[in-house]
Amino acid sequence: MAYPDKLLADDEEVVRHLHPHWLTISWPVVLLLLLVGAASFGAALVPDGRQQGSIRVGVLALAALLVVALVLLPLIRWRTTHYVVTTHRVLLRVGVLARSGRDIGLSRITDVSYRQTLWERVIGSGTVTIETAGDGGPTVLEQIPDSDGVQQLLNHMIEEDADRRAQESADHVRGSESGYPTALV
């Protein structure tokens, strides 16, 4: 079973599954191109001699280390950051080796807002802030693609969740008044 489907309840569906905006990985890609160019240039500059092979290996090893630290780790971090909106909750999962997560029930959300700078408006990104009832404080989701659309979606899902809960409550009351078990009504 694929992520995030393995985290869902029986009657829960994924409405939207997001990663941070793709521009968060644009700088690592630019760095990759610069590192490949610099390593190639550096290896070509090594003068002829007995140590030429080991110096070139050293240049390539340094470049490979920088690629792992400055390119691969940010790409993996981007890929393993999940923002999932379902019919019942918002799931947040972040991390590569050490992971952290938070599940926010739609019924606990009291306010959803978004903020965009001029640049974020141009690229279609922004910050979504989710305020909940309780002591946890606001949850801030940065670099969200289509942040205004996500904010509107969350508000819509909160209303639908409230309607669904009210219907379930009414069905439960009707079932208990009729003397039949709720599942049979």
Rank of each mutant, 00 (worst) to 15 (best):
E13A: 15
D171K: 00
S178K: 10
L73R: 15
I130S: 07
V150W: 04
A69H: 11
Q51N: 14
L75P: 02
A39D: 07
T182R: 12
V67L: 10
D5H: 15
T80I: 04
V150H: 01
P28R: 08
I130W: 05
T24F: 10
Q152Y: 10
L92T: 10
T24M: 12
T139Y: 02
M157I: 03
L154G: 01
A43I: 02
S178M: 11
D148V: 03
E13N: 15
H156E: 12
W27E: 05
T80Y: 12
V14A: 05
D5Q: 15
S113M: 10
V36S: 04
I144R: 04
D163S: 13
A98P: 00
L92K: 04
H172Y: 11
G49D: 04
W78D: 02
L70Q: 07
V68G: 08
M1Y: 12
L62K: 01
L66I: 05
S169E: 10
V84L: 07
A61L: 07
Q116R: 14
W27C: 04
W119T: 03
A43F: 03
T86L: 06
S107V: 10
H19T: 03
F41K: 13
D135T: 11
V185S: 09
S40N: 15
G175M: 03
E120I: 12
S40P: 05
D171M: 01
R165V: 14
G124A: 08
V29P: 08
V94I: 06
G53P: 06
M1Q: 06
L8T: 09
L106Y: 01
G179D: 02
V15T: 00
I123V: 15
T87S: 14
Q116I: 08
P145R: 11
Q51P: 00
A64L: 08
A43N: 07
V94N: 03
P181E: 10
V14M: 09
A170R: 15
R121K: 15
S100N: 13
R89D: 01
V128E: 03
G53R: 11
F41N: 11
P74N: 13
M157P: 01
V90F: 04
P20L: 13
G175Y: 02
R165T: 12
A63Y: 06
H172I: 09
T110G: 06
G42C: 01
V112Q: 01
E120R: 14
I109E: 00
L97M: 12
R174S: 10
S26F: 13
L92I: 13
L73W: 15
H82T: 03
T87D: 01
D48G: 13
I144Y: 05
L70H: 05
T110N: 07
V14G: 03
V173M: 14
I109L: 09
V29H: 04
T129P: 07
W27G: 07
I55D: 02
L97F: 11
L106K: 00
R93H: 12
N155R: 12
E142R: 04
D103T: 14
H88Q: 10
E160G: 10
S107H: 05
